[in-house]
């Protein structure tokens, strides 16, 4: 136990150092922000366009829309909200809420639908 305690302490210290260093990291440049925004704009345009070609897309429509939605979501969270560059703890906190939400509500809607 004593050994593992020491290791823990060292790990904690290392983690702490790493994070403090992390804080010092520069956030991405304004150029990359604008780049991300452009991608988001294009995706939005594609989403809206898909609405007009709904019939041609057929069964592909819903998966395509959902994938574009997820990409947009991830881009904003990773870049604009800095989760890519920030501490892992933030990601873990947010993702647990997100996964929990998707999990319980998807299960609920399924029980209404199929079961």
């Amino acid at each position: 136990m004593s050994v593992s305690d020491e290791t823990l302490a060292r790990e904690a210290q290392a983690e702490h150092d790493a994070q403090t260093e992390h804080e010092g990291h520069d956030h991405p440049s304004d150029r990359s922000y604008v780049g991300i925004a452009l991608i988001l704009a294009v995706l939005t345009a594609l989403e809206v366009a898909s609405f007009y070609v709904e019939d041609q897309l057929g069964a592909l429509l819903v998966p395509a829309l959902v994938i574009m939605m997820i990409v947009k979501f991830v881009l904003v969270v990773a870049w604009f909200m800095h989760l890519r560059f920030d501490s892992n703890l933030f990601t873990r906190v947010f993702v647990s809420g997100l996964v929990l939400a998707v999990g319980v509500y998807a299960a609920t809607l399924t029980t209404f639908r199929f079961w």
Binding site: L100, G103, V104, T111, F114, W115
Partner: peptide
């Protein structure tokens, strides 16, 4: 604790799979 809530609803008519 997040995956057991419907056991309060066994008598409510949720389906057999649930």
């Amino acid at each position: 604790g997040w995956g057991v809530w419907a056991h309060h609803m066994f008598a409510s008519g949720v389906g057999p799979v649930s």
